[in-house]
Amino acid sequence: MLCTARRIVAHQLPGRLTQAITSPVASLSPAALRRLASTLAVLEQREGRLNQGSLNAITAAKKIGGPIHGFVAGSSIKAVAEEAATADGVEKIIAVDNGAYDKGLPENFAPLLVENIKKGGYTHVIAGHTAFGKNLLPRVAALLDSQQISDITSVESENTFVRPIYAGNAVATVESSDPIKIITIRGTAFAPAELGKGSAAVEEGVDPKVESPTEWVSEDLAKSDRPDLATAGRVVAGGRGLKSKEDFDKVIEPLADALGAAIGASRAAVDSGYADNSLQVGQTGKVVAPQLYLAVGISGAIQHLAGMKDSKVIAAINKDADAPIFQVADVGLVGDLFDKVPELTEKLKE
């Protein structure tokens, strides 16, 4: 009942608020309105393991106010749901146990989410701006006739959000008038919610069992013992200046090992085959914000800066003293990377 009422109120908010003076809705203070918000945080899982990186959706949800429910779906989902239920700030985990959702195919996952959003009467739905979230949420938004707000970096109020546009060269503050706000968040802008602090109830969600016209065939994921690029505390990134894949590996890997860092690359390095596509940092690759970003042989094109300029400390090694990377680097060293990087690696090992 409560959920239904909440949904009806939410539907009335945008249009009626100004005209319907006599309506009880109009007399509510902003704080009271905020209490009517309720958020579904879509969590990712992979082969029965909760993706810790998706817990930052819960952190973003906290800034909106109102109860937060988490959502997980896949085969043998119980363990994942129970783990997610310990996340700080979550009231309930909605779980749907069905192997059809393991690969996150948007054709069946979107209707699944829509049914559960309608049932729960949520005013906000949040997922990470990851490959999964980017693929899925716009389809959900279209089915709900809602204009999604992508890749937000800040929550100003329950209907106002901040997001970078033009490769991060401008920052837009936007106000949504949709009754259900569909949002993807920039992972580096919100810390993941802590596990082990909560004890939410786990509830079975509705499963509309829509058939997917798309079939999952295979995947080929880069295997690495290094920290994950998107969440690493330190990142060493190489660019065109590395000249070949052999040199890239020979120069960058020991430095990354010495720092315990993840490896990243510029688009030039990826396009030239020096590094795997999944390592690309920039507007069209990953966005990172580590404690230390060390750019080696990277000139600093705006598309690359879009992916790393929120790093805490940026260091650069480049032989061109006029490279734009030096305009953003906290510390720069002009010199031949083939001399300087091995020297740096040795010094760091000491």
Partner: peptide
């Protein structure tokens, strides 16, 4: 559906020298 309230420059980042 989304009203743009304002668009600003991102906080500038100052290079720290060489």
């Amino acid at each position: 559906r989304l009203k743009v309230l304002k668009v600003t420059e991102p906080a500038p980042r100052q290079g720290g020298g060489k």
